[in-house]
């Protein structure tokens, strides 16, 4: 038998190929970096794709203003270590400008990220955003292209996507339109953790099991923070938890876990019974079609 790439090498090679296609075809791309595990995999892939050169794109964080400080500190350290450029596009700036109007102060801010993202795309003239979305995350994503076309309003039309054949990616756009490129489309949560282990990637500490004050609300675990205070009649517990995704505090819930290193997380992931988004994204549970609706509006 001839030599074949192992599954991690194959996935890595495909992701490098996609990133280099973005660099080769687009004139002003940007990589969306949240400090989360998927975008950290993207950064390692970018290193393998472009070092010893610099990245042919800046990094950009869409900041909801509701972040765990561990994640923001980690984000800034990572950018310094890589010696690359970070743009922070802040929801609070959009709120000041009046382009984001919250219905109430404690409303989850995730769905407004698309407004700030689209404003940043326009301001900087980006023609492609590289993101860490995966097809295994959610039903609507399973049909997403690797290079996904968005019109001037950032809209995704699931019935009118560009066909994508072989690995010939068409990233051509007119001014104002843009491409969302997803190099790790074909990765699963397990692949991500195995890659983190193999590459020895550093992660924000909240991914690992730690003691935290929480309350149990509607079958979810809600961490008690400044923006997610305790409600009347609730009882605070201090338990071991870890986050499976990081994002806006108001819509990211931890899971109970003792996994305090990557290896334990892999074992836990292998035997887990709940999908990543179902467990930890409070905003996708609204309806069966929640994600599809948000994507049509320009959400990542």
């Amino acid at each position: 038998m001839k030599k074949l790439l192992t599954h991690l090498d194959w996935l890595e090679s495909e992701a490098i190929h996609i990133m280099r296609e973005v660099a080769g075809q687009c004139s002003n791309p940007v990589l969306l970096f949240s400090g989360g595990k998927d975008s950290l995999c993207l950064l390692r892939i970018a290193e393998k794709a472009f070092r010893p050169g610099r990245f042919p794109f800046p990094l950009m964080h869409i900041d909801t203003g509701h972040n765990y400080s561990e994640v923001i500190n980690f984000r800034d350290k990572k950018v310094r270590d890589l010696d690359e450029r970070l743009i922070v596009a802040s929801l609070e700036d959009s709120m000041k400008k009046g382009t984001i109007v919250l219905k109430s102060n404690d409303e989850p801010r995730n769905k407004y990220q698309s407004i700030t993202l689209l404003e940043a795309i326009e301001e900087h003239g980006f023609d492609c955003c590289i993101g860490g979305a995966r097809r295994d995350e959610e039903k609507a994503r399973a049909k997403e292209r690797i290079m996904s076309f968005r019109d001037e309003f950032g809209q995704w039309d699931p019935k009118n996507q560009r066909p994508e054949l072989w690995d010939l990616y068409n990233a051509k756009v007119h001014k104002g339109e843009n491409i969302r490129a997803f190099p790790i489309s074909n990765w699963t949560e397990m692949d991500v953790w195995q890659y983190i282990e193999r590459e020895n990637l550093e992660l924000p500490s909240i991914y690992f099991a730690h003691k935290r004050d929480i309350v149990r609300r509607n079958e979810s675990i809600v961490p008690i923070t400044d923006v997610t205070p305790i409600k009347a009649g609730e009882k605070i517990e201090n338990i071991m938890v870890r986050f499976r995704t990081v994002g806006d505090i108001t819509c990211t819930a931890p899971v109970e876990s003792d996994a305090d290193n990557v290896n334990k997380i892999i074992l836990e992931t292998a035997s887990t019974l709940i999908t990543e988004r179902g467990a930890t994204r409070l905003d996708d549970q609204t309806s069966d079609a929640a994600m599809e609706e948000r994507k049509k509006e320009g959400y990542f």
């Binding site: 296609e21 472009f50 010893p52 050169g53």
Partner: peptide, 11 residues
């Protein structure tokens, strides 16, 4: 796909 020319690098 891409040509790497890090001539502007500090190194």
């Amino acid at each position: 796909q891409y040509v790497c020319r890090p001539h502007a690098s500090d190194n």
